[in-house]
Design a binder for these strands. Structure first.
Length: 448
RNA sequence: GGCCCGUUCGUCUAGUGGUUAGGACAUCUGGUUUUCAUCCAGGCAACAGGAGUUCGAUUCUCCUACGGGCUACCA
């Protein structure tokens, strides 16, 4: 049985965006699910637009995602001589010809003229003029086009460099690529490439063209169209396994299943179905996956991925993590939602202050503070008792005092149970924050 | 314009020549909750349109509409 070998071939003219990442994921899974190999090939023949920093970024992004390519990274810029060799060969075979690089129709007159090559001429590939070019696409099914639709495309520029459609074929031959899994923006190139393989008398690989991803506005997702780089999702606090799972489900499915871990993917990829139509990206669903994977983690695992200096692995930080994890669906939210457990609030939102601090709030809170400070055993249940007692003694609703208390301690009105927060914070800190909050709202009152 | 490809709830999708067309996200309504979130229960919601083929089409064929791609000495 021959080895399944695929490749992902980005051009380093920008960061790796999620569309590319998904295409790569499919190419990689296709190979990995059959114990094959997948190569990374950097198509950097466009010297103007290619940048090393993008190459590094792309490699980093895959590392983060957990897509591991086999063998060494191939750089097309290293293969110029080889391309030249193949172009010469094509010329010798009579499958290509030198011409002036005008439009394809007028250039066609040079098909059999054997024009000398110089620094003004280009080389075109001789496309068959009759019949059709057909191939069976793994995802799209049989696709065919009449050869008369196909132009004699340029394979060598006037500066002597080879163009994309030639390089791809040469590299795919040289790396023994068995299956070309790529974006469906390449279907039309496929007809050109197939004919080059044939002219060279080489086996044509099997093709599979995966549909593009559309942005949330339904337009194509691209580097210039708000596509977010893989890196940016990482910065947003998305877990790599969540992004991977989401990207997989965008266009691929296996019955009603949603969750696929790395191993599940490899195991089941072949039995699933790849859709033919483009899919629209949904941040909401990505976040749902993210939350799911976050929920699966133990506290110790969470501690590692959250990776904030406050979460040092100590008992206190474990408790904090445990109490806030439900309200976090990205890594970044662990930071914003835990802030007040580590630092006294500095500023309060003025609109929250005016909303929750009314005429009697100062007195109510002062009373509560006294009662809390008198508490012997600082535990959630006892704290709750005190709050309940004050509420009923005062004959007010819980919100009248609970919300200001929450604001005082956390500077927000969304937090875990306030008695729990008091418990975790400890008596001293609770009392301290209450004290400075009281001063603040006292002044607030005199200002008015 | 030419060529290629596509079209099931708002979104990702399952599925079949005869189904109450299934699931997930979002949304809505309840429940839990001292707030927010989580969680639980339930609801709304789709076969693009038109012709055929057929006893019967969401499913097969054709046309139209719409969407996407390609049409470079970019990749």
């Amino acid at each position: 049985m021959s080895l399944v070998k695929t490749r992902f071939a980005p051009s380093p003219t920008g960061y790796l965006h999620i569309g590319g990442a998904r295409t790569a994921l499919f190419a990689w899974l296709y190979a990995k699910s059959q114990e094959g190999e997948c190569l990374l090939r950097i198509e950097d023949t466009d010297k103007e637009r290619s940048k090393d920093e993008y190459t590094r970024e792309i490699i980093e992004s895959f590392k983060w995602l957990g897509v591991e390519f086999d063998n060494k990274v191939v750089y097309q810029s290293n293969n110029a001589d080889r391309y030249k060799e193949v172009i010469d060969q094509l010329l010798e075979l009579g499958s290509a010809y030198v011409c002036n690089g005008e439009d394809p129709e007028t250039d066609k007159e040079y098909r059999d003229q054997n024009l000398p090559r110089d620094n003004k001429t280009v080389v075109r590939f001789k496309m068959p003029e009759e019949g059709t070019t057909v191939y069976a696409d793994i995802v799209k099914g049989q696709i065919e086009v009449a050869n008369e639709q196909l132009d004699d495309f340029i394979i060598e520029r006037s500066d002597g460099s080879a163009t994309y459609n030639l390089c791809v074929v040469v590299d795919d031959i040289d790396s023994n690529i068995s299956h070309v899994i790529r974006g469906d923006d390449h279907v039309n190139n496929t007809f050109k490439q197939i004919n080059v393989f044939k002219a060279l008398n080489k086996n044509v690989p099997i093709y599979g063209h995966v549909p593009m991803i559309l942005g949330e506005d339904g337009k194509r997702l691209s580097k210039r169209h708000g596509a977010l780089g893989v890196r940016e999702y990482a910065d947003l606090g998305i877990l790599p396994e969540a992004l991977k799972n989401y990207l997989l489900r965008l266009g691929w499915s296996l019955g009603d299943d949603e969750i696929f871990t790395g191993d599940d993917m490899k195991k089941n990829f072949q039995s699933g179905i790849l859709n033919k139509s483009p899919a629209t990206f949904s941040m909401d669903k990505l976040l749902w996956f993210n939350k799911y994977y976050l929920d699966q983690m133990s506290i110790d695992q969470l501690m590692k991925v959250v990776a904030l200096k406050d979460f040092d692995g100590g008992e206190y930080s474990k408790t904090v993590l445990e109490t806030i994890r439900d309200r976090c669906s990205t890594l970044n939210e662990f930071s914003t939602n835990s802030d007040y457990f580590f630092k006294d609030p500095k500023d309060y939102d003025p609109s929250l202050l005016t909303k929750h601090c009314k005429e009697h709030t100062f007195n109510h809170l002062s009373l509560l503070k006294e009662q809390l400070e008198a508490l012997e055993i600082w535990e959630q249940a006892h704290i709750k008792e005190v709050i309940d007692r004050v509420v009923s003694d005062l004959g007010i609703g819980f919100g009248k005092i609970g919300l200001p208390l929450r604001l005082a301690l956390t500077a927000t009105v969304n937090s875990p149970s306030i008695d729990l927060v008091c418990d975790i914070l400890g008596k001293e800190i609770t009392s301290r924050r209450l004290e400075s909050f009281l001063i603040k709202i006292k002044n607030l009152k005199t200002d008015q």
